[in-house]
Design a protein around this nucleic acid. Sequence first.
RNA 1: UCGGGGAUCGUCUAAUGGCAGGACGCCAGACUCUGGAUCUGGCUAUCAAGGUUCGAAUCCUUGUCCCCGAACCA
Length: 565
Amino acid sequence: MTDEKPESRPAANFIEDIINADLAAGKNGGRVHTRFPPEPNGYLHIGHAKSICLNFGTAAKYGGKCNLRFDDTNPTAEDVEYVDSIAEDVRWLGFQWHGEALYASDYFQKIYECAEHLVREGKAYVCDLTAEQTSEYRGNFYKSGKDSPFRSRTVEENLDLFRRMRAGEFADGSRVLRAKIDMQHPNLNMRDPPLYRIKKAHHHRTGDAWCIYPMYDYAHPISDALEGITHSICTLEFEDHRPLYDWCIQNLPLPYQPRQIEFARLNLTYTLMSKRRLLQLVNEKLVSSWNDPRMPTLSGLRRRGYTPEAIRAFAERVGVAKNDSTVDVGLLEFAIREDLEKRAPRALAVLRPLKVAIDNYPEGQVDWFEAPNHPDDPSLGTRKIPFSKVVYIEQDDFMENPPKKWFRLSPGAEIRLRYACLIRCTDIVKNDKGEVVELHCTWDPASRGGDAPDGRRVKGTSHWVSAAHAVKATVRLYDRLFTVENPGGGDKDFRSTLNPASLETLTDARIEPSLAEAAPGARFQFERLGYFCADAVDSKPGTPAFNRTVQLKDGWSKLVKAGKP
RNA sequence: UCGGGGAUCGUCUAAUGGCAGGACGCCAGACUCUGGAUCUGGCUAUCAAGGUUCGAAUCCUUGUCCCCGAACCA
């Protein structure tokens, strides 16, 4: 990078302020070491992406390191399926963790030894209260707690009992190890919190080696300290767990003293961001899977056609602060448009075909027009598109009785077929129901390529495909999954606000021939429509299926909406 | 009625006692073989009331509103 001293760099957010101050105070020997600590109990979503970008990005900015650590202290909720998907998603986003992927379960032995240390110091005890009794003894916001009758057990008795817990002598839920702090503490987290519970459950990594598992509040600070984490960044709801985090760091013989910093998690309009509810969508088949392109999961966004670059740029723009906030989903859409606008090759595709016969075009003739793959970037090259006597245009591009500012085709009007020629509508054909099913047009042979030699201007340009050469394709049009800004907000069941039109599958779309062999995952701009990608699962060369990633900005529909077309 | 946080354009976010700035959005215009892109110009904000100060978004006081917290979840 530069020879600039780290602490002289202007801070991008309050976390960097803190790091700069720590660096200036000579803490941690000048090191910056963060970690991303997902629990492997679900798929990563766009909210996690913010945290990933923050943790990995901050470390990188300071020339530090960032660990990937699976927080797997609750075997009943966790699964290897999730650890695999999480690792894949982090890599896809473009980040490389320091060393091997780590697991809190790697530290179970050390965490256990720390617990014995607390017991020996008289700072932890085995408690036989039931969960209900524990809760009762804890008191509540307004009522202080009272000491457990087991609080005064001797060190010897506690050590014996704890070892027998570990040895599997007691039933699930019959005892816990608790920190001995203060049952009168105004912060409920400090009222003798449980450190270990008995769970005779199979763990995805440690198997049956353990039947007691540490709680998050206890295992997390130890894991951080063991790894030499300097700044342990988490979300706001852990703010009042920080005293307990610090208590653990202070009362245990640990090699490092990490510091917890909390920031506001990402909320997005029209988007659900809770793992529990996302799981529900999957389990209840309200979406096809975790990677359904309508899901806010990273695997869903990837399949939808989002790029890692766009997601990182989005995270950057959203910023980092402590205000509860809900970002407009439009900002995410802006990020992917911005990225794809410069990189996606253009192509012509007609979603809802309307047949157009060019009456004065010679039967059997084919013109191959050359079209740039990107109008502003010649380095993407060109391709040839076939033109013949019958073409399809978009149904939306014709109106029999158009409003005033209509630039597209209508009876008697002339438009340009993109990169091909000018055509004028001479006649329309309707079916029994009075719907327009076919247009008759004439072309101006002098306009070959798209410009008239007489210099006449044509306002409208339509995309099109040659009927004889176009390939049929499946195109899935995705829209937001919910109809309300805050699904599941208030007392509404989020399932009642699902958008019934979140997926529309078109099976009669026609694409230009060059698109037929698109590689799965390849992204294109279908001109005048939006960005699309060949589906990574269902699209095969020869039988393509495209997902709409996002629509192009649409000035016309905006006019219509404003009521002034 | 307890503890912990937070209130700046419509939405995010900066300004760390010294010009309230940026991005998205929106509006108007230019340009255009995508009603796309691009380019101009514009719009809109310091929760309230007092105080300190030459000067307050920032410091103090009082109040209001919002979020989180009572799993042997993370």
